[in-house]
């Protein structure tokens, strides 16, 4: 619809998750009208993300060094590992300020329909971490949906022979609801 580089920018923005054609057009024209210094800063950050960001060798979280900030913190409790699906889940658990242990990012959940089986996740790396015997509790914090629950079931079964304490995040009725609003 537009010519040259403006259309290229709209097309590229439209490939991002959650950005439709209208949003892509709005962002593109915002960038066209924005101060050049702001655009330069944005483009530098985008370049840096690909250059500097990697995945932690130990837990699979995003990091700027071989070890992420959490794995490199000696004050964290290394006897407990919280297993999550994605790096963004680490941030969600950290926001609670309740958990002082370490994390392990699986890189997704078991979803056979999408061709993702246990061997496609970082389960082998988790078993390697548990092999040294320093971990006493594994908290499985996969998403509370069917694939997350199935992944938790698989992990529980796989970890059972190790004799560790394997726990799940609690779930239940939220405080503030009334009984008559609950439906089957």
């Amino acid at each position: 619809m537009y010519e040259g580089i403006v259309q290229d920018l709209i097309d590229e923005l439209g490939r991002l998750p959650g950005i439709g054609p209208k949003s892509a057009q709005r962002i593109a024209f915002h960038l066209v009208q924005t101060d050049p210094a702001d655009v330069a800063r944005l483009s530098q950050i985008l370049a840096d993300v690909k250059d500097k960001i990697r995945f932690c060798d130990l837990c699979g979280n995003v990091a700027e060094a071989p070890r992420c900030r959490i794995c490199g913190d000696s004050r964290r409790d290394s006897s407990a590992i919280c297993v999550v699906e994605e790096p963004k889940d680490v941030a969600a658990v950290e926001r609670t300020r309740e958990f002082r242990g370490l994390y392990h990012v699986l890189g997704g959940a078991i979803s056979p329909m999408d061709g993702i089986g246990p061997e496609d996740l970082r389960i082998r790396e988790l078993l390697s971490r548990l092999a040294d015997g320093g971990v006493t509790e594994v908290i499985i914090a996969t998403d509370p949906n069917i694939s997350g629950e199935a992944t938790a079931t698989y992990l529980t079964r796989t970890l059972a022979p190790l004799g560790l304490r394997v726990t799940r995040l609690a779930s239940g009725l939220p405080v503030g609801v009334t009984w008559n609003t609950l439906m089957r």
Binding site: I110, S111, P112, M113, I146, E149, A150, T153, Y154, R157
Partner: peptide, 20 residues
Amino acid sequence: HGDAICRDYTAYTAATAVVE
């Protein structure tokens, strides 16, 4: 059915093949 199926990994893989 979801609750019972995802508590058994073997059942989960079979049920996934059924729905696909």
